[in-house]
Computed example of a mutant assay.
Amino acid sequence: MNILHIMASVSDEGGGPIEALVQADAVGRRKGHRRTIVSLDLPADPWVPRCPVETIALGSPFVRRGRRTMPWLRYGFTPHLVPWLKRNLGAYDRVVVNGLWNYTALAARRVLPYRSTPYFVFPHGMLDPWFRSAYPVKHSCKQAAWWIAEGPLLQGARAVLFTSEGERTAAAGAFWPYRLRGLVTGYGTGDVPVATAGQAAAFQACVPALGDKPYLLFLGRLHPKKGCDLLLAAFATLRRLAPDHHLVIAGPDRDGWQAALQAMSRDLGIADRIHWPGMLRDGAKWGALFGCEAFVLPSHGENFGIAVAEALACGKPVLLSHKVNIASEIVTAGAGLAASDTAEGVAQLLAAYLALPVEQRRLMADRARRCFVDRYAADRVAERTLAILENPDQFT
């Protein structure tokens, strides 16, 4: 199959969606499938040539320049996408729209339902009901957009693809009217590299004050949805239980939240035990994952969390909130623990893990690796996704 993916950006700061797509492309190519991405990036963006999947960047320089003074331009309008789709759609066997609430959804809505090429929509967690309560005004704006673009787009799709049954269940009724056919693809990532001293050194260079102290790791976008404030409040309660432990909070700060989190850590008296290396890439990222005691994601809502799969692949226990949609699978596999997405819940989560005997932690680490191989390896997930794209009617 020749598959076209439509998405806002191929920047690796976008996290899971582009990483999963790259991994799926590697599997698909071995089976003779070819993927192309069309995005709202600018051709001059440095991450475009770095993307290993062929990318056609159609973004508007005018929109990019005006984003800082006119926030609504973050929607990403470009006059080039709709004409390009009309001219080129016939060259593809399948189309996948990745993500919602940006101009790609409206452009796709204007073209895809009126052509014969089967198309699918991958929301990537963007139907999470948490946003409805956390941002009611923004949710009202999205409801209006739903009537115009997202709703008809999803209704006309051959299938809407969810990463887990938890995500599909949580999304039901998020907007009105909610008419779509949802299928669960699973989600995964490629296997991790072998741990090396070079990776450890690359990470240490990013956090020189950490030294050889034991640490818990948060690796992801700094956003209120991710629960980093809960993590800080919980970590502050562990002074007696784990006085030597540190916490690494690594990830891009696109929303400017880090300053408030750092101020919070100072108020809690734990600033000297918190490290902020920013976004970690390549060897530094693997060094952080291989070196941590456990990975922590206390999110208020998470369709999957690609970093969770990466941590499991590194043989690291994962400590999650129940709002991470695969938390129950991981707890059942004995690969981690889960609790509520509150300060008290996260404190109990960290305390429960740190109170485990060393042998039980090692057993949990062994089960983490097995959980990855059995459930979240890229090959298995990519094969199911390709099967759905080929013939969604054989799935329920």
Results as ranks from 00 to 15, higher is better:
residue 194 V to M: 14
residue 248 V to A: 05
residue 249 I to Y: 11
residue 158 R to M: 07
residue 313 A to Q: 11
residue 45 D to G: 11
residue 72 W to C: 10
residue 393 D to L: 00
residue 211 G to E: 06
residue 100 L to H: 09
residue 371 C to K: 08
residue 49 P to L: 11
residue 359 E to K: 03
residue 145 A to V: 15
residue 365 A to G: 01
residue 327 A to F: 07
residue 388 I to C: 06
residue 227 G to W: 05
residue 15 G to V: 04
residue 313 A to G: 10
residue 367 R to C: 13
residue 63 V to P: 09
residue 303 N to V: 06
residue 159 A to V: 00
residue 319 L to W: 02
residue 285 K to I: 05
residue 52 P to W: 00
residue 185 T to S: 03
residue 308 V to E: 01
residue 78 T to S: 15
residue 61 P to I: 04
residue 176 W to I: 12
residue 91 A to V: 01
residue 52 P to K: 13
residue 244 D to M: 05
residue 29 R to H: 03
residue 372 F to T: 10
residue 335 A to E: 05
residue 8 A to H: 13
residue 48 V to N: 03
residue 328 S to P: 01
residue 395 F to Y: 09
residue 42 L to Q: 09
residue 225 K to L: 06
residue 380 R to E: 04
residue 104 T to S: 13
residue 65 R to T: 12
residue 157 A to V: 06
residue 56 I to M: 12
residue 135 Y to N: 09
residue 161 L to K: 01
residue 79 P to C: 08
residue 232 L to K: 12
residue 317 P to A: 12
residue 155 Q to V: 02
residue 12 D to K: 12
residue 59 G to T: 04
residue 136 P to I: 02
residue 5 H to L: 11
residue 170 A to R: 13
residue 267 D to W: 02
residue 295 F to H: 13
residue 65 R to C: 08
residue 225 K to T: 04
residue 255 D to C: 04
residue 89 L to Y: 01
residue 209 A to M: 11
residue 76 G to C: 08
residue 126 M to V: 00
residue 323 K to W: 11
residue 231 L to H: 07
residue 116 S to C: 05
residue 387 A to M: 03
residue 274 I to K: 07
residue 32 G to F: 00
residue 279 M to W: 00
residue 12 D to M: 10
residue 298 P to A: 05
residue 357 P to G: 01
residue 196 T to D: 09
residue 231 L to F: 07
residue 124 H to N: 09
residue 340 S to N: 01
residue 292 C to E: 10
residue 379 D to R: 05
residue 172 A to Y: 10
residue 323 K to G: 00
residue 154 L to G: 03
residue 266 R to Y: 06
residue 69 T to Q: 15
residue 8 A to P: 02
residue 325 N to W: 05
residue 76 G to L: 10
residue 19 E to K: 15
residue 105 A to I: 15
residue 330 I to S: 00
residue 114 Y to Q: 13
residue 283 G to K: 14
residue 383 E to I: 07
residue 257 W to G: 14
residue 372 F to H: 07
residue 190 G to R: 12
residue 351 A to F: 08
residue 379 D to Q: 08
residue 321 S to V: 02
residue 240 R to M: 05
residue 318 V to Q: 00
residue 258 Q to C: 04
residue 140 S to N: 00
residue 24 A to E: 15
residue 263 A to P: 07
residue 83 P to L: 09
residue 293 E to W: 08
residue 143 Q to T: 13
residue 19 E to H: 12
residue 90 G to I: 06
residue 103 Y to F: 15
residue 261 L to E: 12
residue 351 A to M: 11
residue 352 A to D: 13
residue 372 F to L: 11
residue 205 A to D: 06
residue 221 R to V: 03
residue 350 L to T: 06
residue 72 W to P: 07
residue 213 K to F: 00
residue 376 Y to W: 13
residue 2 N to P: 03
residue 254 R to Y: 14
residue 160 V to C: 05
residue 171 A to C: 04
